[in-house]
Amino acid sequence: ANRKYINGPETLLFSKSRQLYGLNLARAAMQKSREVLVMEGYTDVIAARQAGIESVVAVLGTALGTRHIDVLKRFVDRVVLVLDGDTAGRRRADQVLELFVVADVNLRIVTLPGAADPADFINQFGREALEHLVQNAPDALEHKLSTLTEGVDLTRDTHRATKAIQEMLDLLAQAGEPGDLRTSQMLVRLAKTFSIPADELRRQLGSRTQAARQRSRGFDDSGPEPTEFEIRGEPLEPIRGIDLELFEIMIEHPLQAAQVIEQIDPLWLHSSGARTLMQAYQDLELEGRDLDLNTVLMMIEDEGLKGMVVGIDEAMRQRSGLPPQSFQERFQAVLARLHLKQSALNDTHELNRIEQEEQESEDSDSAIRMLGELINSLRPKHGIPPR
C-alpha cells in the first residue's frame, strides 16, 4: 500500500535492461553538458526535473547493466551515480563500479547523507545542495578505496588491509591498462595509504592484469568481440546464415524492427558486418528515427557494408513470389535459434571459467601470503612490532 510505483517484469516488448527512464527528455541536455545523473527511481527523476535538473535518468526497476552503459556513452563523457544514503545504496555502488571501469567511463559517485533518496533530499534541501554534491563527487576508484578503508587500522589489521589492496588491484586489472595515467595515480595513492612500495603494487597489478587478459582471451576465442572494438580499416565480414535471416526480417518489416533491436544483443551475431549493421540500427532507434532501408543506408558509412545491405534487399526481391510468413512467426524462429546458440556458448564459457579459477586458486593463496609478509616486514618502520 505504501509503494511509490509498481515494478513490472521484463517482457519481449519492454526490455528494461536496455531502457532508461527519462532519456527522451534528457537527451538534448545530456549531449550539451556531456554529463548525466543516474538515479534509482522514477520519482527521483521527476523530483529532479521539477527542480530544474534536466540531465537526469533512472533505471527501470532493474540493476544498471552494460547495455545501459552503452547507451549512456553515446551521449555523455561523465556519469554521476546518485545513490540512496542507505546500506543498499552503498552496496549497489560496488556492484556497478567494475562495469564502468571495464567500459572506461568517467564515473563519479554521490552517496546522499543519512538514509535519504534523491527525491527526499531535493525536496528538503533543494537543487543547489544536490548540485554541490555532484560537483564535488569523488571518482569511483577514490570512492571504492574510501569505502574499503573506512574504520580500518591499516597498520594493525593486516587481514583487512590485505583484502582492501587485493580488491583495488583486481579492480584496476579490469581496466586492462596498467600503464595509463589514471592507474599510475591510483597506485601512488595506494602506496601512500598502505605504506607499500609502488613498484611492488605495480608488479602485483601486472600479474593480475595478465591473468585478466588471459581469461578475456579465453572468452573471446569462442565468441565475437563487440562492434565498438572492431579494427577500423579492415573489411567487414559478410553477413551469412542466421544473421542474414535476421536482417531480412528487419528490412522486410521496418515498422517492427524496433522489436528486434530490443531483444537482440549485437554480441550474439556472428560476423563483424552483422554487428556493425545492428549497431547502426540501434543508433537510429535511439535517435527516434525511422528504421526503413533508405534511412539505414544513409546511416552506414562503410561502402562495403552498404553493398551487403543492398545485396540482401535485391536477393529478397528476387524471392518475392514465395509464400509470405508473418513477422512474429519468422522472428520467433530466428530468436529461438539465437538463444540456443548463445546458451551453448555460455555453457562453454562457464566451463572455461571454472577451470581457470581452479588453476588460479593456489596462486591467489600465495599472493595473499606474500602481501601479508610484506606488510608485516614494514611494520617496524612505523614503530610497530612485527607479528
Results as ranks from 00 to 15, higher is better:
residue 291 L to A: 01
residue 35 E to T: 15
residue 284 L to S: 01
residue 99 L to A: 11
residue 162 T to D: 05
residue 200 E to H: 08
residue 35 E to K: 15
residue 170 D to G: 07
residue 7 N to A: 07
residue 216 S to W: 06
residue 328 Q to P: 04
residue 263 Q to M: 09
residue 224 P to G: 06
residue 233 G to D: 03
residue 258 A to N: 07
residue 56 V to P: 12
residue 145 L to R: 03
residue 29 A to V: 08
residue 197 P to A: 10
residue 198 A to T: 12
residue 206 G to L: 10
residue 304 G to W: 08
residue 29 A to N: 09
residue 150 E to R: 09
residue 64 L to S: 07
residue 281 Y to D: 00
residue 218 G to D: 02
residue 169 L to V: 08
residue 30 M to Y: 13
residue 21 Y to D: 00
residue 64 L to D: 05
residue 87 T to H: 11
residue 244 L to R: 08
residue 86 D to N: 02
residue 284 L to Y: 12
residue 360 E to A: 08
residue 72 L to H: 02
residue 108 R to L: 14
residue 150 E to N: 14
residue 290 D to A: 07
residue 121 F to S: 07
residue 60 L to Y: 08
residue 271 S to R: 00
residue 377 S to Y: 00
residue 179 G to R: 14
residue 223 G to C: 05
residue 336 A to G: 10
residue 305 L to A: 02
residue 8 G to V: 09
residue 282 Q to W: 00
residue 98 E to D: 12
residue 383 G to Y: 08
residue 330 R to H: 09
residue 290 D to C: 06
residue 192 K to G: 03
residue 207 S to I: 15
residue 20 L to F: 00
residue 3 R to P: 09
residue 276 T to I: 05
residue 381 K to N: 11
residue 333 A to L: 12
residue 47 A to H: 02
residue 322 L to C: 10
residue 255 L to K: 15
residue 344 A to H: 03
residue 349 H to F: 08
residue 120 D to T: 11
residue 231 I to Q: 10
residue 317 R to T: 06
residue 303 E to H: 08
residue 41 G to D: 00
residue 233 G to I: 04
residue 199 D to T: 15
residue 9 P to S: 09
residue 182 R to N: 12
residue 97 L to E: 13
residue 102 V to N: 11
residue 217 R to D: 02
residue 225 E to V: 14
residue 82 V to D: 06
residue 65 G to T: 02
residue 239 I to K: 02
residue 222 S to E: 06
residue 302 D to F: 03
residue 337 R to D: 07
residue 242 I to D: 07
residue 17 S to R: 12
residue 210 Q to D: 15
residue 242 I to V: 10
